[in-house]
Amino acid sequence: MPLPQDLLRRLYTEPPEGFVATRDAAVAEARRSGDPATAREIARLRRPTVAAWLVNLLALRRPELVADLTQLAEALRAAQRDLRGPRLRELSAQRRAAVAALVAEARRLAADVEGGPPAGKLPLGEVEATLNAALSDAGVAEQVRSGRLLRAASYAGFGEVPRPQLRLVTGGEEPTPPAGPPAGPGHRAADRRTGRGEHAGRADQAGRKAGRADHADHAAREAGRTTREDDRAERAARKADRAERDAARATREAERAARAERARQRRALERELTRARTDQERAEAELAGAAEAEHDGAEELAGIERSLAELERRRARAEQELSRRKLARRAAERAVTAARRRTGEVEGAIEAVDAEEGAAAEGPGGAD
């Protein structure tokens, strides 16, 4: 049964100082839950070093950056296989930039982790070495992607140089001297009687000579074998030297290409800066014109508002004068009405007087 991913993520992203306590707590929890198999699996987990922890932070919190590094590694290996120098130099420059960016991101991620090591004690050199190893070794790259790296890795850059397999040549026992030709009965009798000791001495001397010859042949064969092995070792060393020189030359060419690329980028940025400054000056001039127009508009609006205020005051005075005149008109209308009423009353009185005079005049005179 696979372990819970959230537990693995928590274990390998928290500072290494808290790894053991968190792991032991998870073991105890699994045991309380009646899952001894999971408890044993969790107990087997090992605490990473600080450098491995930083790499695990990258793999678990910024997996897209690690994926980009893997793609760059595949491109580098393809360029090395195809011996494409310009492409290799370009990719080498990208490799340095990518590794530097990842190291900076690891420093930033570590700063965001509560209780992590201080920034001055982070083993960023080991992180860089591990990332470079991941670029060169697919096995290291797989460990980095897993987010469960336990220790930093490194890579020499040229692969393994074959070691000469030398054997120590030692002298063996001298061979048993070969027996001489069989002697006839007469000789054996004479040997037994007079020259047995002399004959044995000559046979022993001949045997020693044959043994020395065999030993010399054996030593010559071993010397030749040793010489061939030394030659192979020398060729391997020369091959390694050539590889190192080629790598150094590729590094220098990559650095020159990187410098040229930086110079090109600087020129492009300077041109862009010139255009940006020109646009800035144009925008500032437009801003000054717009600010001046805004000021003029504000002045014009203030003048209009002053005129409106004056008109409002004049309107208020006109309304007051109109009200006064309306009152005067109403008073005049009342006066006219009263005058007309009085005129009618006077006219009625006059008519009554005239009527009385007429009646009086007609009465006495008519009787005579």
Rank of each mutant, 00 (worst) to 15 (best):
A250Q: 01
R252V: 04
R252F: 02
E253S: 03
E253K: 03
E253G: 03
A254F: 01
E255G: 02
E255W: 06
R256N: 07
A257C: 06
A257L: 05
A257K: 01
A258T: 02
R259L: 12
R259H: 11
R259Q: 10
R259P: 00
A260R: 10
R262F: 05
A263I: 10
R266M: 05
R266E: 10
R266Y: 06
R266Q: 11
R267N: 14
R267P: 00
A268P: 02
A268K: 14
L269A: 15
E270L: 09
E270S: 09
R271G: 10
R271I: 04
L273V: 13
T274D: 15
T274W: 06
R275C: 06
R275L: 13
R275A: 13
A276L: 14
A276Y: 12
A276V: 07
A276C: 10
A276S: 14
A276E: 09
R277V: 09
Q280Y: 12
E281V: 10
R282E: 08
R282Y: 04
E284L: 08
A285F: 04
A285W: 06
A285E: 11
E286T: 06
L287W: 08
L287M: 09
L287K: 08
A288T: 05
A288W: 02
G289A: 15
A290F: 11
A291W: 06
